[in-house]
């Protein structure tokens, strides 16, 4: 039984938390590695320059949600939250940084830091993707996964436009077992970008997102990729998960 099925079987609102042991987090990527990773595509190194240099950081033990927060879970705390019935176990999207932060605090948690995210995603060996160093299109929900695809890359289902199906291309959380991180955390690559605690650039009021989404190319699925955006932004590829201090 997959995680999402198991969670759904007992009502769907329970949060499964994964314990991440204390250890060294590998954060970012070095230029040489990125050159090697990008050699096949039309990818400019300077677009990912904010990942360099690669560094290490010691992270205390913490807990993290096994999956991104779902619509069902979010609605439990915020009953006014609306979403289409077929997206119940999909990650909640169209949430600002503040909304994500508020949800996590209400359940006794917080947004993860970048170091915690990369620790949870890259394990002890600092792998490129949660499942390893080699890209595998079957192990993440991204632009070529068919879940929505590139034609749904605009708008959000809050604003209906002439297209009736701009609902985003997310998938149910935890649906790809093979894409788990070494610690058993799901969807750390793809599905939705995840808001992080702290700032990408405090002077410009930019928050940090990690993980890539159903819209992105494979380069953004690397655990070291960093996306910045204003905290007030809400899009149908931005979601979050919570972390919890302590063991």
């Amino acid at each position: 039984m997959t995680l999402v099925a198991a969670v759904a079987a007992q009502g769907g609102t329970a949060v499964t938390k994964i314990r991440i042991p204390a250890g060294t987090a590998t954060i970012g990527s070095d230029t040489k590695t990125m050159k090697e990773q990008f050699k096949d595509g039309n990818v400019r190194l300077e677009w990912f320059a904010d990942e360099a240099p690669q560094r290490k950081a010691e992270v205390d033990a913490f807990l993290i949600d096994a999956t991104e927060v779902t619509n069902r879970q979010y609605k439990k705390l915020f009953p006014e939250h609306e979403f289409p019935a077929n997206l119940t176990d999909h990650p909640v999207v169209n949430v600002t940084w503040k909304m994500a932060d508020e949800y996590c605090r209400k359940i006794g948690g917080r947004l993860p830091s970048e170091a915690e995210f990369e620790r949870a995603a890259r394990g002890d060996d600092g792998r490129v993707y949660p499942w390893g160093d080699d890209f595998d299109p079957r192990k993440a929900i991204y632009v070529e996964s068919g879940g929505g695809g590139s034609q749904l890359k605009i708008g959000s289902f809050e604003q209906e436009s002439s297209g009736s199906n701009l609902l985003g291309g997310t998938s149910p959380v935890g649906s790809i077992e093979e894409g788990k991180s070494p610690f058993g955390v799901y969807d750390m690559a793809g599905n939705v970008w995840e808001w992080q605690a702290g700032w990408y650039d405090e002077a410009k009021k930019l928050r940090l997102l990690k993980g890539g989404s159903w819209l992105t190319s494979k380069e953004s699925l690397r655990s070291s990729t960093r996306l910045s955006d204003a905290g007030a932004s809400k899009f149908n590829d931005y979601g979050f998960r919570c972390a919890y201090t302590g063991e």
Binding site: W47, S150, W193, K204, S213, T216, L227, D229
Partner: peptide, 21 residues
């Protein structure tokens, strides 16, 4: 917000992939 062309192009590539370019 003070971002320049490279930052913004980077954002579009990371978020929308090569189809944006």
């Amino acid at each position: 917000t003070g971002l320049v062309k490279q930052d913004i192009t980077s954002y579009f590539y990371k978020r929308y992939g090569k189809e944006a370019m």
